[in-house]
Design a protein around this nucleic acid. Structure first.
Lengths: 229, 229
DNA sequence: GCGCGCAAAATCGTATACAGATTTGCATTA
DNA sequence: TAATGCAAATCTGTATACGATTTTGCGCGC
């Protein structure tokens, strides 16, 4: 998204992207020298970026043994979904109290504008983009920068699995209108200034996907360890 | 808390502690060379630790200009309190469903054991320790490692202000029985397996302190910029 | 007196080197 | 064959150095 010019940012973005899409396999040890060569840099800035990714939960670190990719376990993914519920339900409550009528009207207009795509969109990437976009807007309306920060981080870490889940959903049946309807329901509750209903709708919307996460993790392993689909 | 042996961990812990208690003044630029000398290390490991602290929200970073202490603004502190509400209310709900009767009995016993201290404790440090201990236990009972991680981070970042708030509370009047009662109320809701009530009690408990945060921030500035009290 | 610009000093960004720790692979032995 | 121990190779941890960038301070002109 944010394209930074400086070299250190370039490295950070690259590594973050690799970690997000599991270019490092779960649990795998990360070789600093190899990365340095691959990314045309020395180990020093690479290590700085890796340290940041540790703090962000993308990687783990063992003293004396180096950096490792985070494990990809069903439990960890469920935890992330639950954390999303925590953040987003509260964000919905706050947005209910703080968003201006104009803000909500604008969000409604945005939903209307992309509505056709919800059904048309063939690739999961576009679908996920729209879904994340909606949720990010809600959090923005909460006016709480910390919640926004936390949600961005959670989304980045769970994106790989969500993508797989979305693809499965797409294959299975047309659950897309469902998603669209869920978003609309949340917005309606916000417009009605009903914090409880908004939080409930948000909870239901996320929990619905959460239940399939374990299955998605299994598919994720298949994708990661089989050459190509 | 966790005493780490390796040198890099020593540096990380030291810097994290300094950042938490605002040994760097809000907004202040951080001089790497000076830190390196002060902590008996070279700039390389210092910078690695600083990068982690950036990712954890203790510091900010500007390309080409270096590291800075996070600003201490009322808005930022309110955001942190609201994030705590998000995390802890959801944790309470989850704990309601997942904690075993034994777990809850143990927590009740712990509350009983430290009850005398709630009134006796003269120093805010001890009081804050007990309060954080209770909240950490609740999150532990939620069984969600991610929520625990997030709460630890939020607590570390808001501790300085909470401490000042607690001291003010201590001076003002004996609101300590209130705090005690609030904890008891939360536990009761958990024991009754009433998720809604638990979340509500948690929300009220945190929000009560939240409202004083702005005032605490003002006092924090006074403490930071006046030699000693 | 007040900005403006330039040069000096300070500071950051990162490559590189090397010491120490860890892992690997092989040979030896029960 | 499986286990063990040792030595070589690999990799991490950190100091150091130096070019690039930013900040500072001073002198000049208005």
């Amino acid at each position: 998204m944010a394209k930074a010019e400086s070299n250190v940012d370039r490295l950070y973005d690259a590594l973050r992207g690799m970690a997000a899409e599991f270019a490092f396999k779960p649990g795998e040890r990360i070789n600093e020298s190899a990365l340095a060569q691959q990314l045309n840099a020395s180990r020093t800035p690479i290590r700085e970026a890796l340290n940041r990714l540790v703090a962000e939960g993308f990687l783990t670190f063992q003293s004396g043994r180096g950096f490792f990719c985070r494990p990809l376990s069903p439990e960890a993914v469920l935890d992330l979904y639950e954390a999303r519920v925590a953040i987003e339900c509260e964000a919905a409550r706050l947005a209910c109290a703080r968003a201006s009528d104009d803000d909500l009207a604008e969000l409604a207009a945005w939903l209307d504008r992309i509505a056709p795509d919800y059904v048309t969109a063939t690739d999961a990437v576009r679908l996920l983009e729209m879904d994340e976009g909606f949720h990010r807007r809600i959090v923005a309306l909460s006016g709480n920068g910390e919640l926004a920060r936390l949600l961005d981080n959670l989304n980045d870490r769970v994106r790989y699995v969500r993508m797989i889940d979305l693809r499965a959903m797409q294959r299975g049946n047309a659950a897309r209108p469902d998603m669209m309807a869920a978003h609309r329901r949340i917005l309606d509750a916000l417009t009605a200034r009903d914090a409880e209903a908004a939080a409930q709708a948000m909870r239901a919307h996320i929990a619905r996907r959460r239940d399939e996460a374990a299955q998605a993790v299994r598919e994720a392993y298949a994708q990661l360890y089989v050459p190509d689909l």
